[in-house]
Amino acid sequence: MMTLQENKTKIFNQVAQATIEAGRPQNSVTVVAVTKYVDSEVARALVDIGVTHIGENRVDKFLDKYQALKDYDLTWHLIGTLQRRKVKDVINYVDYFHALDSVKLAAEIQKRAEHPVKCFLQVNISGEESKHGFSPEEVEDALAQMADFDKVELVGLMTMAPIAATEKEIADIFSKTNLLRQQLADKKMKYMPFSELSMGMSGDYKIAIQNGSTFVRIGTSFFK
């Protein structure tokens, strides 16, 4: 078993290499370390070796880690589905929220947030029924309803590929997501820069980087 330091070095090197191979600027991809499988002490060890972006998918785990690591200067990512009734508990600790999947959720964030929260609109490009998120056809109407939400800064899109997808299918989904992001960015809407893409996890982040991802969410590869 490799050490945490060895895994971290390997992941960051592979992300850097994939970025170069994609013909993109160095440091244009941020690694979010997903700590949902480990306790606060392991997360602290990760931070101590230089990881500064921490991702959690459940509100209770997010708050546990946030309290345990509050002495560090970290960027916090909530990456999982967020129930509207829990928004008030967590949203003011969040720097990036990766799973904005309904207008009602956006309205609750607008109501509860004390500062603008960088949000990724979750899109279901694959049409997979088990996935949350807006279909591409629903996006325009949803954005019209969020037009005045100054606490919901739509920095980009987030999507996930189906677990059983082939590399070609994954690339197609990620490519279509980037194309949609570009179309939205070109509209230059207020509070909606759409400059970022949250795509790619331990198994497919290299394909995601090839297709424009700026945030990759990596969990298991740190801890095996």
Rank of each mutant, 00 (worst) to 15 (best):
A106I: 13
V59W: 12
T35S: 15
Q110I: 13
P136A: 05
F120N: 04
G55I: 08
V139W: 05
T81L: 11
A22R: 08
I20Y: 02
T75P: 01
F62H: 02
A113C: 06
K88A: 12
V34Y: 06
Y66Q: 12
S28A: 09
T75N: 10
T81I: 10
T19S: 04
N57I: 09
K111R: 15
W76R: 02
V117R: 01
G80Q: 12
E41H: 10
R112P: 00
N57H: 09
E128C: 05
K118V: 04
E137H: 06
N124M: 07
E138A: 14
E21N: 15
Y37P: 00
K118G: 06
R84C: 02
D60E: 15
Q83F: 14
S126N: 06
K131A: 03
E114V: 04
A45F: 05
Q83V: 10
T75Y: 06
L46I: 11
I20E: 15
L105V: 04
V90L: 12
H132Y: 14
D60Q: 15
V47G: 02
N27H: 15
R84P: 00
T35R: 07
V42F: 06
A33L: 08
T75A: 08
L74Y: 10
F134S: 03
A43W: 13
A33T: 06
Q83D: 08
D89P: 00
A107I: 04
F120S: 05
C119Q: 12
K86V: 10
K88R: 15
D60Y: 08
I91A: 01
E128F: 05
L78Y: 10
R44M: 04
S102F: 10
T81M: 13
Y93R: 12
E41K: 14
Y66G: 01
F62C: 08
E129H: 09
K104N: 10
I125A: 02
F62D: 03
D48F: 06
G127I: 03
V42L: 12
R85S: 10
T30G: 00
Q26M: 13
V51E: 15
D39Y: 05
W76I: 09
I125E: 02
H53T: 13
A43H: 07
Q122D: 04
S126C: 09
V42P: 00
G23Y: 12
Y96Q: 05
A22F: 07
A68L: 06
S130Q: 15
E56P: 02
E129I: 07
I79R: 01
I91V: 15
R44W: 07
G55A: 13
G50W: 10
F62I: 11
S102W: 11
V34Q: 03
K88N: 08
D48G: 06
V139R: 01
Q110F: 11
K88D: 08
R58A: 11
D89C: 07
T75C: 14
V32Y: 03
P136S: 03
P116F: 09
D60V: 12
S40H: 09
R84D: 00
L46R: 13
W76M: 06
R44H: 02
H53V: 14
V90H: 02
L82C: 05
R24F: 06
R84L: 05
H132S: 15
H132D: 08
V34I: 15
A106E: 10
E41C: 00
A43Q: 13
P116L: 07
V31G: 01
G23K: 10
G80N: 13
L78E: 00
D39I: 05
